[in-house]
């Protein structure tokens, strides 16, 4: 268990819970990151942040600070 920020690049994880409130949480979910879905962490940006992940077949850019809100296993 842990959050998305802590995941090693190249691994695939499953979403357990999404923390946070209001608009940000809604945004994350609207983009397809929901309980039980798979996320593949493809890489981190050249300057270290944000992360590029693949979810539901497309590429999404997520900041590490926001990735902390996503609990995965």
């Amino acid at each position: 268990m842990g959050n998305l920020r802590q995941v090693e690049v190249g691994s695939t994880v499953k979403v357990v819970k999404i923390n946070g409130e209001g608009a940000l949480k809604r945004r994350i979910m609207d983009m397809g990151i929901t309980k039980g879905c798979e996320i593949f962490v493809r890489k981190s940006a050249p300057l270290g942040d944000p992360l590029e992940v693949q979810v539901r077949g497309y590429e999404l850019s997520v900041r590490k600070a926001d990735a902390e809100l996503i609990e995965v296993e």
Binding site: A23, L24, R27, I28, M31, P50, E52, Y58, E59, L60, S61, V62, R63, A65, D66
Partner: peptide
């Protein structure tokens, strides 16, 4: 605080 940033990287 910086605004949140969740953005699609289109093909």
């Amino acid at each position: 605080k910086a605004a949140p940033f969740v953005m699609e990287l289109p093909s």
